[in-house]
């Protein structure tokens, strides 16, 4: 019994960590750079489908199935999603800030259409199954299998976290922050805001693609239904709750919001009569929407907001004088 609970906990946390990866990607775009992406689901989906096509065994009824190693699939996913974000960004970042939001919304609609209608590539509404899962050899032992998968996710999140923290402190990250805080001043110092923004947007998109691939291999099956607009909302709620601009906040927000979501979904399915469940589920979504607005109104920095370098400097200076 305890082993079952442990296996479930590992499964739950692995799922939460795949969201944490998306959240980290969004944090590069929004938290570090201030770029608004309403099409997260599209970039995640593109990553998932790319990796699925690259790694599944050949299939007669659709294109591809190249049977490549999982690692190659993940890399391909990050590259494809990164390129897609680069294309969207190159088109809109030089224009007004909300044109990017509208364009990413359009991408989400279009990718959804492509998933459904490009049947020879994506398998249409039925999606793609039999995606190879890491450590498939361990599948007999449920506990070991979930723990191994959890380990992989934790490693990916840790590597991304350390890499992004390093990046934020690097000259590149400092330029991004400078542009976000005062574009004019950064320009006066000879930095080109558009180029840096585009790089950050592509990097964020690539991370989302990687997350999509990781999720697809973890579940083993993908379909257009997994990438509805609600995914975009969930990830935004995670980042806003956790605190934008802060990588630790992004991870914590993902685990917290995913936990609340899973818990309330379980409550709905056990306490609400079957014929009312669809309605109860829509109330769950109302709660996310209202929660997002309330966080924006009352606590725009989230639970763990970004600590601005200036306040950090002030507190450092103040500390020695207290002694």
């Amino acid at each position: 019994m305890t082993l079952d609970i442990l296996a479930y906990a590992a499964f739950f946390l692995s799922m939460a960590l795949t969201y944490a990866i998306i959240c980290l990607g969004l944090n590069v775009q929004w938290g570090m750079t201030g770029l608004f992406n309403v099409g997260i689901a599209a970039f995640v989906a593109v990553g998932a489908y790319t990796s699925a096509l690259l790694t599944t065994p050949p299939s007669p009824d659709r294109f591809g199935g190249f049977d490549l190693p999982i690692f190659v699939g993940w890399l391909g996913a990050a590259i494809t999603s990164g390129l897609l974000s680069w294309a969207v960004g190159a088109l809109t970042i030089r224009l007004r800030s909300d044109y990017l939001a509208i364009a990413t919304f359009g991408i989400a609609v279009t990718v959804q259409l492509c998933m459904l209608n490009l049947q020879p590539i994506t398998g249409g509404a039925f999606g793609i199954g039999f995606i190879p899962r890491p450590f498939a050899g361990l599948q007999e032992n449920a506990l070991l299998f979930s723990l191994a998968n959890f380990g992989v996710m934790a490693l990916v999140v840790l590597a991304l976290y350390l890499g992004l923290e390093h990046l934020a402190k690097s000259p590149w990250g400092r330029v991004l922050r400078a542009i976000r805080e005062d574009e004019m001043a950064a320009q006066a110092l000879g930095k080109r805001p558009i180029r840096f923004r585009l790089q950050a947007f592509s990097l964020g998109g690539a991370i989302m693609g990687l997350a999509g691939a990781a999720q697809a291999h973890f579940i083993g099956f993908i379909a257009p239904d997994n990438y509805m607009p609600i995914l975009t909302f969930q990830v935004w709620a995670m980042l806003i709750v956790g605190g934008s601009g802060n990588n630790r906040g992004a991870i914590a927000g993902a685990v917290l919001v995913w936990g609340l979501w899973a818990l309330s979904a379980a409550a709905v399915s056990s306490f609400v009569p079957a014929e009312q469940q669809a309605r109860a589920a829509s109330l769950q979504i109302v709660a996310i929407g209202v929660g997002l607005c309330l966080m924006l109104l009352w606590r725009p920095r989230g639970l763990f907001g970004e600590v601005s370098p200036l306040t950090r400097l002030k507190s450092l200076r103040r500390a020695p004088s207290k002694e």
Binding site: F233, I285, I288, G289, C293, L296
Partner: peptide, 27 residues
């Protein structure tokens, strides 16, 4: 507030309003 915060709030409002309709009138 920055424009983009309003865009984001409108995004949250649209989610809440739409799901409220789904709750009141079913889909």
């Amino acid at each position: 507030s920055a424009i983009i915060i309003m865009v984001m709030a409108s995004f949250g409002a649209s989610l809440a309003l739409r799901s409220l309709l789904e709750f009141l009138f079913t889909s």
